[in-house]
Design a protein around this nucleic acid. Structure first.
Lengths: 367, 367
DNA sequence: TTGAAAGCGCTAACAA
DNA sequence: TTGTTAGCGCTTTCAA
């Protein structure tokens, strides 16, 4: 059974011709016919003032509006959806909803949607397991939708996107520009390269990298880091894998501290960077005096951290907004509608990165 | 115009009796009639296997299932909703969605909902302005809903809850137990009192309080703090107001540093506590050696902070789950259904609080 | 500009 | 167990 829904209307049996003046406390929510009756017009006329689909005389329009206000009538979105084969809900499908970047992106989508009168529904894909993906996709697609925004921030999100049916307008939100569906992107690889170059420019021989769980084989952040290193002819150490938990960065920081060749670390996000700095400190290493550490995202706490984090600012909120607008363009089939909207995160230089200390970075790399 | 929706079905004109074998690439999504035709049964029979509302012979059941799989048919939730006067969407209405507690709570709601086959829609109320509240409520109520979960974490959320119509099952999620509607609560005031008593027990003469924007006149955290102080006969300094931004805590920390009587500070949440600690440090004061600071929430980064934060653990995810289950109980009108579900945040003792230094806390309070 | 009639995709009521 | 007949609350023809 896929449905667990229950009744939400009070009266199972309709009482027609209810007298409004006597029954102040209506039992069932008013329907369009109630409005029509009270306003002395036909049902389609009420519909016309509701949708603006056709002209209605000012006089009738007014009495319809009055009736609506008096009854506190709200049209049923579901009935509208069925009758018009249109919908005003957009679904967001994602591998997570509460982590910083996700939550801000969703907030951006919601705000843009609400401004246009759309509702946003969210459903999360727990893992890349066949079952989880199928269940989530099923739930999403079962709704009558105006469109879907898929967050490709992680593997579950990417897996879900791949199973979405063709016939529903879809846009993706991502850190890497790809071509299958329209996308709003935050160009991670450029920013990652820039951050890496910044570190190299400070005099570091190379830059180590701690990555968060990638959405595909490799994330844009890792790609950008590697590209910058290669371009500079610097050695490319193996990337270290953190989980999404800041604590995982701490363990990695401790390990890194024991490797005397490490002088600069580029982390997949700010929270991991905070963990790494903590782990380094656990081993008696200071940031940036002993080891420089940079993050990614410009998390709200990154400027408050000790030391304040050098990072790349990702405007997730704006990303969400752009994603929604891209969907709208797609849905209304605007002629020259763009399929992409890309923005490049800007460097935020604070205090967690500095020139390498002369005490470290002497030993050889075993890349 | 309240609707900005667009068509999402490809073919405006129906082509009946389409031959499935020749047209591999279907233009319009299959409807129940297509399934019935292909399976050689009536439409209601298909509906029966879909909903499980009545017995269907195994034979027909199987051919219906086959047809569904072959056509990749998904029932229209909107049509179901209209026909059955049931819905499988629950709306979440909140003043914010991306801050830690909010996001985790919503994640909890979503997970519990998905497990029961429900979809969750979210809409935010930007402010307590009449217009914002009305727009948000309108959007929420316009959907056909199984129920509503209102987050009373802030003033906009409270304002929205008050305007929600009676006829839709509603539960609130809150930090204080109140009685109007069923509620899932995290008992803030007890935990706040406990935290305050903990500080007092360490030897502090009193505890200062920095609060986040309250949802009503006063939040449970502030109430609990005041209660503990009164009970202990300690002076009650005026509460200081921070915004939701961690940076606002920093400015307050700097101000607090200049008041020699301050030895212990209880902050409305961990992020503000981090800001306060930073502000104190800006003025050369160490935590906890010079001033003890405790937070609230047990934010994921609180254990990584320097020093690790003493705080109260709030299980927001579980809170969201409990809220949803409460709604389900209400919706199905379970006989002995509870209207409340309360849990008490547990103290998490780390390193940001210690006995007062002998250098501070000498000057008199001007409470 | 308006109303009557005919749907939308589905479930519910009623016979058979 | 099954099909037929009526709806659900709305929008969309189509005439007038």
């Amino acid at each position: 059974m896929r449905r667990g829904a229950e009744k939400h209307r009070a009266a199972p049996t309709r009482t027609d011709g209810l007298t409004l003046t006597t029954k102040k406390q209506q039992q069932r929510p008013p329907v369009i016919a109630d409005v029509a009756r009270l306003a002395g017009v036909s049902v389609p006329t009420v519909s016309r003032v509701l949708t603006g689909a056709a002209k209605v005389s000012e006089e009738k329009r007014q009495s319809v509006m009055d009736a609506i206000a008096l009854l506190k009538y709200r049209p049923s979105a579901a009935a509208r959806s069925v009758a018009s084969r249109q919908s005003s809900v957009v679904a967001v499908i994602a591998g997570n909803t509460s982590r910083y970047g996700y939550a801000e992106t969703i907030r951006g989508i919601e705000e843009a949607a609400r401004a246009r009168g759309y509702i946003v529904s969210i459903t999360v894909v727990d893992s890349i397991e066949e079952d989880d993906v199928e269940r989530a996709v099923s739930l999403v697609v079962g709704q009558d939708l105006a469109g879907i925004v898929a967050l490709k921030f992680d593997a579950p999100g990417v897996a879900a996107l791949q199973r979405l049916p063709e016939h529903i307008p879809t846009v993706a939100i991502s850190g890497v520009r790809e071509t299958q569906v329209p996308q709003a992107v935050l160009d991670e690889s450029s920013a990652a390269a820039e951050l890496t170059e910044f570190l190299l420019g400070l005099g570091h021989r190379t830059v180590h990298h701690v990555r968060v769980p990638p959405s595909r084989r490799e994330d844009g952040r890792t790609t950008g880091w590697r590209r910058a290193l290669r371009k500079a002819g610097a050695p490319i150490p193996p990337a270290l894998d953190a989980s999404w938990l800041p604590e995982s960065g701490r363990a990695i920081g401790q390990a890194l501290a024991r490797d005397g060749s490490v002088t600069a670390v580029f982390c997949g996000n700010d929270e991991i960077a905070m963990g790494v700095i903590r782990g380094l400190a656990d081993e008696g290493l200071r940031t940036p005096e002993d080891v420089s550490v940079v993050g990614f995202d410009n998390h709200p706490l990154s400027g408050l951290w000790t030391p304040p984090l050098t990072t790349a600012h990702q405007d997730f909120f704006g990303l969400g907004q752009r994603g929604f607008e891209l969907l709208m363009a797609r849905v209304s089939e605007e002629p020259g509608a763009r399929r992409f909207s890309s923005e490049r995160p800007a460097l935020v230089i604070r205090e967690s990165a500095a020139a390498p200390s002369t005490d470290r970075g002497r030993s050889d790399l075993t890349a």
